[in-house]
Amino acid sequence: MTAPSAPVIDAEGVGKEFVLRRRTRGLRRAATRVPAVSEVSFTVRPGETVGYLGPNGAGKSTTLKMLVGILTPTAGRLRVAGLEPARQRTELAYRIGVVFGQRTTLWWDLPLRDSFALLRRMYRVPAAEHRARLEELVELLELAPFLATPVRQLSLGQRMRGDLTAALLHDPSLLVLDEPTIGLDVVSKAAVRDFLRRMNAERGTTILLTTHDLGDVERLCRRVMVIDHGRVAFDGDLAGLRALAPVPRTLVVDLAAPAPPIDVPGARVIRTDGPRQWLELAGNPAAVIARVSHDHEIADLTLREPDIEDVVTRLYRERPDPSAPAIAGDVRHNVE
Rank of each mutant, 00 (worst) to 15 (best):
E48D: 13
E129L: 14
F42Q: 04
G266H: 08
P258G: 06
R193P: 00
K65L: 10
A30N: 01
E280R: 05
A259H: 15
R222I: 00
G54S: 08
V99Y: 05
P248D: 13
R219W: 03
Q153L: 14
V99K: 04
M225S: 04
L156V: 08
A328K: 07
G26W: 09
V14K: 06
R89S: 14
L140W: 13
R193T: 05
H229C: 11
W278Q: 12
R314M: 15
G97R: 08
P306W: 12
R242A: 08
Q88H: 14
G157L: 01
F116N: 02
V217N: 01
L255C: 08
L184Y: 06
M225C: 09
I70V: 15
W278M: 01
A11S: 10
Y94S: 15
D321H: 05
R21T: 09
E309G: 13
A201R: 15
L208R: 01
D163P: 00
T302N: 13
R268V: 12
D300R: 14
A31Y: 00
L110V: 09
E139L: 09
R113M: 05
I262M: 09
P145C: 05
D228Q: 13
V288Q: 10
R219I: 04
G283W: 12
V292R: 04
G240F: 05
K189H: 04
A86M: 06
E318I: 07
L154W: 10
L281T: 07
A58N: 09
I182A: 12
T2G: 03
V331N: 11
V14A: 08
A256L: 11
P248S: 13
K60A: 11
A257P: 06
R332Q: 15
A117G: 07
D321F: 05
E309P: 00
L119N: 02
V50M: 03
V331Q: 13
E39N: 14
T72C: 03
R291Y: 07
A3W: 05
G76P: 00
E39T: 10
T210L: 03
E129G: 01
L20D: 06
I327G: 00
D254V: 08
P46N: 09
A75M: 04
